[in-house]
Amino acid sequence: MSDEAQPLGAAPAGPRPAFGLIVAVAIFAALALVPLVSGVWGGGWLTSLAIRAMIFAIVAISLDLLLGHGGLVSFGHSAFVAIGAYATGIMITEGVYEMALILPVAIGAAALFAVAIGAVAMRTSGVSFIMITLAFGQMVYFALGSLAQYGADDGLTLWSAPDVFGTSWLASETGVYVTVLGVLVATWALVHAVVGSRFGRVLRAARQNPTRVAAMGYSVTRYRLVAYVIAGVIAALAGVLWAVHAEFVSPSLGSWQRSGDLIVMVVLGGMATRNGALIGALFFVLIEEALSSITHDWRLIFGPMLVLIALFARGGLAGLLDRVQGPR
């Protein structure tokens, strides 16, 4: 490790930004090629798998804003996905097919929930914070399961794809694919901009030392609350995409197991790294798919794998990549 003072204006600590950018571009390019490859093979399963992975990546990236950058262990993040998905499912069931109407409702509902729950949760920290967000997730889960007119526990099938400003853009799988990839890239770029911004700097500082940040004159809870709203809204957006893609929504989208999976994705990939959440989510979904096709008890294999990665790849998979790149 070199402890010499770097010249002023040198890159701050963390993985080299240029390398992170290259990795991200490579991943996005590979994802863009999937529909073509899938077309050659003549099967939609690969496209469908990639869409699923990308949607989880969107959610994981939003969670990393809280978990990695904010130090806020939100154990109810999948509830926001479910809120977005149900907003879509319910509106379509009620005959509202226009995305320009569905999106504001999904986003508004998520923001409202985030403000309400966040206002309570942000007063606490540590285990209490985890428990409150978990309780919130469970609340949403059971509430959705009790919606008798919308399928209750069995979920809700969407009989039609929503319109986008009157067009049927989202009716084709290609349209969905391009949209999901676009939202993924936008989310990645947005979250990184936010992390590096003034706001993000306060958020990151508050993870390290909230007392100092408060003594500097920042109301830490306000910044955390705003981060919670941003992350919740992005997750809800992913939920909308999920509903459109799967043409089916069910309460299990918001289960605590899903929230747990999301945390695993972020930690596995590497918290608060440029591409950790992205890589972690893609890896998780692919491994889940591969292993579950072999055995129903795939978690028995996946569990030890996670332990190995935790042991040997501190900083997650993104940390491994950095090591491949060579010592700093």
């Binding site: 590096g196 911004s197 003034r198």
Partner: peptide
């Protein structure tokens, strides 16, 4: 304001 979300703070 510190509620600015896009511009890189490190380069201000």
């Amino acid at each position: 304001s510190s509620f600015r979300f896009f511009r890189p703070a490190a380069r201000e």
